[in-house]
Design a protein around this nucleic acid. Structure first.
Lengths: 136, 136
DNA sequence: TAAGTACTTTATAATGATTCTAAAGTACTG
DNA sequence: CAGTACTTTAGAATCATTATAAAGTACTTA
């Protein structure tokens, strides 16, 4: 499905040079079956395990934010000390399991239509994000 | 409406000793007509202006988290570097104005009923929080 | 009311995520 | 191949938050 060539093409087409660090990070993020929710620290650990050559933490930060700007990653609104990212950039919502502190995707179709009845003059709605906290 | 005596009663009734710092903080937070959204830094600045006697930053942190535990304040889920609190502890949602980075309360009745169609076995829904991002 | 105790406040240090810096390395262009 | 602009990197800097531990204060009970 996704392979090195595709990553290279995608990076180049969005004006990001396909460096070996970026390709490694693409592999870690996108060669997965399921959506991936992660912090920079999670990603750093995964990369260290995967490959012998260390990618600097600064590069991981740079790359993740570059990918976010290109809309290859989404930042998730949570109030935790670490920032969470999501490889699922489609319009969707989340369960947050308060026991395990884990996020679970909620497809848009899993949520009934949300109607916002109030308008703020001169402002447009950019997105609607729902966080459903669950626990045992 | 709210006055010092009420604050003292409320504090005492929830097992918090009514110290002058806590009462000052109550005044800053609750002697307002409208809901107040703030960060620790906001509150610190307000307190410095209001009263001559300085309240230590550590005390502000301690008090805000104590109030949060007593359900006198709510923490808001946003991914900003600072933590936001809300004096409106009722069940409600928010607009986030991306231009000014300001929060606006959305009453529960301003939002149509939200139906979560998916269930996670063994888990109960604790809360549903909606963040509506708006901009010019 | 005084003494004891548990709770509070405080300044300051420690922590930890993130951002900055500036030098060395690399991809791409001509 | 040389030049330039983009990248990576280690390490330092920043900044919100949390921890520490000593001094202060509220409250209890005699």
């Amino acid at each position: 499905m996704n392979n090195k060539e595709n990553f290279i093409k995608k990076l180049r087409s969005s004006g990001l040079r396909p460096t070996k660090q970026r390709i490694e990070i693409c592999k870690a993020l996108y060669e997965r079956k399921k959506t991936f929710h992660f912090t920079i620290d999670d990603l750093n650990k995964i990369l260290r395990k995967k490959s012998k050559e260390k990618i600097s933490l600064a590069t991981i930060y740079n790359t993740v934010y570059a990918f976010k700007n290109k809309n290859y990653l989404k930042e998730i609104s949570l109030n935790t000390n670490k920032t969470y990212f999501d490889t699922n950039v489609s319009n969707h919502h989340h369960f947050l399991d308060e026991n395990s502190n884990r996020l679970i995707d909620l497809k848009n179709s899993d949520v009934g239509k949300v109607k916002i009845k109030r308008k703020i003059p001169g402002k447009k709605i950019k997105s609607i994000e729902i966080l459903v906290r669950i626990s045992d």
